[in-house]
Amino acid sequence: MTISQLLPSIIAVGVAALLSAGIIWAIRPWLLQYALARPNARSSHRVPTAQGAGVAVIAATLLVAGTIAGYAAVPDLSIPPAIFAAALFIAVVGFADDIRSIPVVPRLLLQGAAVAAVLFTASDDVRISAVCPLWIERGLLLLAGLWFVNLVNFMDGLDWMTVAEAVPVTGAMVLLGWFGDFPMAATIVAAALCGAMLGFAPFNRPVAKVFLGDVGSLPIGLLLGWCLLQLAYSQLFAAALLLPLYYLADATVTLLRRMIRREPFWAAHRSHFYQRATDNGFSVLRVVSEVFALNVGLAVLAIASTRAQSAVIDVISTTVGGLGVALVMYRFSRRRPATS
């Protein structure tokens, strides 16, 4: 890839970071007055904290990605309008839920509408498998997309946690785009989201001054899910699984455990592995550092599997990544030995 092709994604990261940070700085006084997150059964914070910084993250992501897509002289840089519309719509749903809680069923229906808008406006030629009937594939993707949107929200329960997830994942996508293994449109979206999360990071550093809120976590899940779907459409299944593997494993295993125990899995709780870690003596910074390091490792494995183009390497990378995720989750579920 030439410098002229690299430049748009580099600009996207830098401009989105500055724009995100600037908007957060500007709106934080308003958030402190009108959008406080008060501690509940799920919370890791102990005092009311401003939430809603996701407004800045999503605004910066969409503005930067849209501007570059519209004006950069780079081929294949057409981002589907449905992505922007669905991200804005689901952000509004999240903002409403932040201010005044929306019941579970209407919330899921609205989220499902956003995911469906992305999937069902895509061309019929865009397929993962030509063998599976289109309506079945799209239906399964709708369920998967709805789950992914919510699991990002579920996992956004600790300072820097979503930063530790989104930055390595989007960073890996940008690198894959530079190698020519990832569509340029998705690369620009990933670069803008990476930059916006970097701009958010200083404000969310433990102890956080501001949270993303559902207005941020839901559309972040939608945008990440769409980018991962582009990997699947490109038949890069190992990379599409490896990049979000920790979030997928923690959220899915936790949900299944709660369902087996007949607990109200839709209610606020503190049984995710990363939450149990803080109850087991891990500091917040230690938890997010380990998650970040794990995600960097998963990103390296994803890139290696993509570059190798070998089924054997795919299996080895996925196995190693799965073992790494299992080890971290096991550590988080055990009491940390006291240090003398």
Score class of each variant (00 low, 15 high):
residue 99 I to V: 15
residue 127 R to Q: 07
residue 133 P to S: 04
residue 141 L to R: 04
residue 160 W to L: 09
residue 144 A to R: 01
residue 111 Q to V: 07
residue 108 L to F: 12
residue 81 P to G: 06
residue 90 I to Y: 06
residue 142 L to N: 01
residue 135 W to M: 08
residue 133 P to V: 03
residue 77 L to E: 00
residue 159 D to M: 09
residue 132 C to W: 01
residue 164 A to G: 12
residue 136 I to Q: 07
residue 113 A to Y: 07
residue 157 G to A: 09
residue 122 A to E: 13
residue 102 I to T: 14
residue 162 T to D: 12
residue 104 V to W: 13
residue 104 V to K: 11
residue 165 E to Q: 15
residue 141 L to A: 08
residue 123 S to F: 04
residue 161 M to D: 04
residue 106 P to A: 05
residue 77 L to A: 00
residue 136 I to S: 04
residue 167 V to T: 10
residue 170 T to K: 00
residue 104 V to N: 13
residue 152 V to R: 02
residue 151 L to D: 01
residue 85 A to C: 06
residue 114 A to P: 14
residue 99 I to Y: 15
residue 117 A to P: 06
residue 151 L to T: 10
residue 86 A to M: 04
residue 145 G to S: 01
residue 160 W to H: 08
residue 98 D to N: 11
residue 113 A to H: 08
residue 137 E to I: 05
residue 157 G to F: 11
residue 139 G to N: 08
residue 94 G to W: 05
residue 125 D to T: 10
residue 113 A to E: 07
residue 145 G to M: 06
residue 132 C to A: 06
residue 111 Q to A: 09
residue 105 V to I: 15
residue 140 L to G: 15
residue 140 L to S: 12
residue 150 N to Y: 02
residue 155 M to L: 08
residue 133 P to I: 03
residue 138 R to L: 08
residue 112 G to A: 06
residue 148 F to Q: 13
residue 84 F to N: 02
residue 168 P to H: 13
residue 168 P to T: 13
residue 120 F to L: 15
residue 85 A to M: 08
residue 104 V to A: 15
residue 151 L to A: 01
residue 112 G to C: 02
residue 157 G to W: 09
residue 170 T to F: 02
residue 128 I to H: 00
residue 117 A to I: 11
residue 118 V to K: 01
residue 107 R to E: 10
residue 166 A to S: 13
residue 90 I to F: 05
residue 133 P to W: 02
residue 105 V to T: 12
residue 120 F to M: 13
residue 127 R to P: 06
residue 98 D to V: 12
residue 93 V to T: 11
residue 164 A to L: 06
residue 150 N to I: 00
residue 78 S to Y: 07
residue 147 W to E: 12
residue 77 L to M: 03
residue 92 V to G: 00
residue 170 T to V: 03
residue 140 L to N: 11
residue 154 F to D: 02
residue 104 V to P: 14
residue 144 A to Y: 01
residue 77 L to D: 00
residue 141 L to Q: 03
residue 141 L to Y: 05
residue 133 P to R: 04
residue 163 V to P: 03
residue 156 D to R: 05
residue 168 P to C: 13
residue 131 V to W: 07
residue 146 L to G: 11
residue 82 A to S: 13
residue 167 V to D: 00
residue 116 A to V: 09
residue 80 P to E: 11
residue 100 R to Q: 15
residue 101 S to Q: 15
residue 139 G to M: 08
residue 151 L to G: 01
residue 107 R to M: 10
residue 125 D to P: 01
residue 124 D to M: 09
residue 99 I to G: 12
residue 137 E to A: 03
residue 154 F to K: 05
residue 83 I to M: 12
residue 119 L to D: 00
residue 132 C to L: 10
residue 87 A to M: 04
residue 78 S to A: 15
residue 153 N to Q: 14
residue 84 F to I: 02
residue 94 G to F: 02
residue 142 L to P: 03
residue 156 D to M: 05
residue 147 W to V: 14
residue 109 L to C: 02
residue 108 L to C: 03
residue 136 I to T: 11
residue 113 A to W: 08
residue 121 T to S: 15
residue 157 G to E: 10
